[in-house]
Amino acid sequence: MRAAFCGSFDPPTLGHLDIIERASTLFDELIVLVATNSSKSSMFSMEQRLAWLREACQDLPNVTCKIQKGLIVQACQEHEIHVLVRGIRNEQDCAYEQNMAFMNAYLDPNIETICLFTKPEYDLFSSSNVRELLKYHQNIQPFVPACVFKSLEKERT
Rank of each mutant, 00 (worst) to 15 (best):
N104Q: 13
T113L: 06
N62Y: 11
T64M: 09
N90I: 06
K119L: 13
M100Q: 03
L124Q: 06
P120R: 09
N90T: 02
E121S: 11
F125H: 10
E91Q: 07
Y106H: 07
F117W: 09
E78N: 13
P109E: 08
E80K: 13
V85L: 10
Q77A: 14
I67A: 14
K66Y: 04
L124P: 08
L60S: 09
K69W: 12
G87T: 01
L84I: 15
D123N: 01
M100G: 05
L60I: 00
M103Y: 04
A105P: 01
I111P: 04
R86L: 11
Q68I: 11
K69N: 15
D108H: 01
R86H: 02
M103F: 08
A95P: 01
N99H: 03
L107H: 03
L124T: 10
E121T: 10
R89T: 07
D93R: 10
P109K: 08
C76M: 10
C65T: 05
D123T: 05
I81M: 14
A75D: 13
Q77W: 14
F125N: 08
Q98R: 01
K69A: 15
G70Q: 14
L71A: 14
D93Q: 01
L84A: 13
P120A: 14
C115K: 07
L71R: 04
Y96A: 13
T64K: 05
N104K: 00
D93S: 06
Q68Y: 08
P61L: 15
L116F: 08
Y96G: 03
I114D: 06
T64Y: 09
P120K: 10
V63L: 10
N104T: 10
E121F: 11
I114G: 02
K119W: 04
R86Y: 10
A75T: 07
F117L: 14
Y106G: 04
Q68F: 06
N90C: 03
T118P: 05
N99M: 09
Y96N: 12
Q98P: 06
P61T: 15
Q92N: 01
C57K: 00
E97H: 07
Q58I: 05
I81L: 13
G70D: 14
Q58V: 02
I114A: 02
Y96K: 06
F125A: 10
T113S: 00
C65L: 04
L107M: 12
T118F: 00
R86M: 12
A75R: 06
L116E: 08
L116V: 09
P109W: 09
D93N: 02
Y122A: 10
M103G: 00
D123H: 05
E80Y: 13
L84H: 10
Q58L: 03
E121I: 12
F102V: 01
Y122K: 02
V73C: 14
